[in-house]
Simulated scan of single mutants.
Amino acid sequence: MSAEAGWGWARAIQPAGGTGQHAGPHETFAHPLKARIVDSQRHAPVADVAVTFSWDTMSQQALFEGDEATAQVRTDAQGYAQSPQLVAGDAAGTAVFTVTAEGAAPERFEVTVDH
């Protein structure tokens, strides 16, 4: 079933950690980004699904370890996917990440680099 058919998304992305945290310039954030993928109807976890964490801010506020702007991981048996560690850049502000998984509406996660 597709969203175009009016049935909605088959899966949902639930924030499960990391969003809303703060770090100083060039510091590693305390927690990686974490999402949970569940079946939209039964709210049961969905295992072995590819989840992509993509940085979509145009300044250098935060990147994954290794200066990567995107990370893809698979969900575990409980439906959780965790990004690599995030490292703050030198510019203060909010970094926005879009989290996507097949069959689910995208979800936005945010972290902040403090002055």
Score class of each variant (00 low, 15 high):
Met1Arg: 03
Met1Val: 01
Ser2Arg: 14
Ser2Met: 09
Ser2Ile: 09
Ala3Asn: 15
Ala3Lys: 14
Glu4Asn: 07
Glu4Gln: 11
Ala5Phe: 09
Ala5Ile: 01
Ala5Gly: 09
Ala5Gln: 15
Ala5His: 10
Trp7Val: 05
Trp9Gly: 00
Trp9Phe: 05
Ala10Asn: 05
Ala10Lys: 07
Ala10Leu: 05
Ala10Pro: 07
Arg11Met: 04
Arg11Tyr: 12
Arg11Ile: 02
Ile13Asn: 06
Ile13Met: 03
Ile13Trp: 02
Gln14Tyr: 07
Gln14Arg: 15
Gln14His: 09
Ala16Ser: 06
Ala16Pro: 02
Gly20Thr: 02
Gln21Phe: 10
His22Asn: 13
His22Val: 11
His22Gln: 14
Ala23Arg: 02
Gly24His: 08
Glu27Met: 01
Thr28His: 06
Phe29Asn: 12
His31Pro: 00
His31Gly: 07
His31Asn: 15
Pro32Arg: 04
Leu33Trp: 05
Lys34Arg: 15
Ala35Glu: 11
Ala35Tyr: 10
Arg36Asp: 01
Arg36Val: 02
Arg36Lys: 15
Ile37Ala: 06
Val38Tyr: 08
Ser40Thr: 10
Ser40Lys: 09
Ser40Pro: 02
Gln41Glu: 13
Arg42Cys: 00
His43Ile: 01
Ala44Gly: 03
Ala44Tyr: 13
Pro45His: 10
Ala47Tyr: 11
Ala47His: 13
Ala47Trp: 08
Ala47Asn: 12
Asp48Pro: 04
Asp48His: 15
Asp48Arg: 14
Ala50Met: 02
Ala50His: 04
Val51Lys: 09
Thr52Lys: 04
Thr52Pro: 01
Phe53Cys: 06
Ser54Phe: 00
Ser54Pro: 01
Ser54His: 07
Ser54Leu: 06
Asp56Leu: 14
Thr57His: 06
Met58Tyr: 14
Met58Pro: 12
Ser59Cys: 09
Ser59Ile: 10
Gln60Pro: 08
Gln60Thr: 13
Gln60Lys: 13
Gln61Asn: 12
Leu63Cys: 09
Leu63Arg: 13
Phe64Ile: 08
Phe64His: 03
Glu65Tyr: 05
Glu65Trp: 06
Gly66Arg: 14
Gly66Lys: 15
Glu68Asn: 13
Ala71Val: 00
Ala71Thr: 00
Gln72Cys: 11
Val73Thr: 06
Val73Met: 03
Val73Lys: 09
Arg74Glu: 04
Arg74Cys: 08
Gln78Trp: 05
Gly79Ser: 10
Gly79His: 09
Gly79Asp: 12
Gly79Tyr: 07
Tyr80Pro: 05
Tyr80Lys: 01
Ala81Leu: 02
Ala81Thr: 02
Gln82Val: 15
Gln82Pro: 00
Gln82Trp: 03
Ser83Leu: 06
Pro84Leu: 05
Gln85Cys: 07
Leu86Lys: 08
Leu86His: 10
Leu86Asp: 11
Val87Ile: 14
Val87Met: 13
Asp90Tyr: 10
Asp90Arg: 13
Gly93Pro: 07
Thr94Met: 05
Thr98Trp: 07
Thr98Gly: 00
Thr100Pro: 01
Ala101Ile: 12
Glu102Asp: 13
Gly103His: 06
Gly103Met: 10
Ala104Arg: 14
Ala105Glu: 06
Pro106Trp: 10
Arg108Trp: 00
Phe109Ala: 05
Glu110Gly: 01
Glu110Thr: 15
Val111Thr: 08
Thr112His: 00
Val113His: 09
Asp114Trp: 03
His115Asp: 15
His115Ser: 14
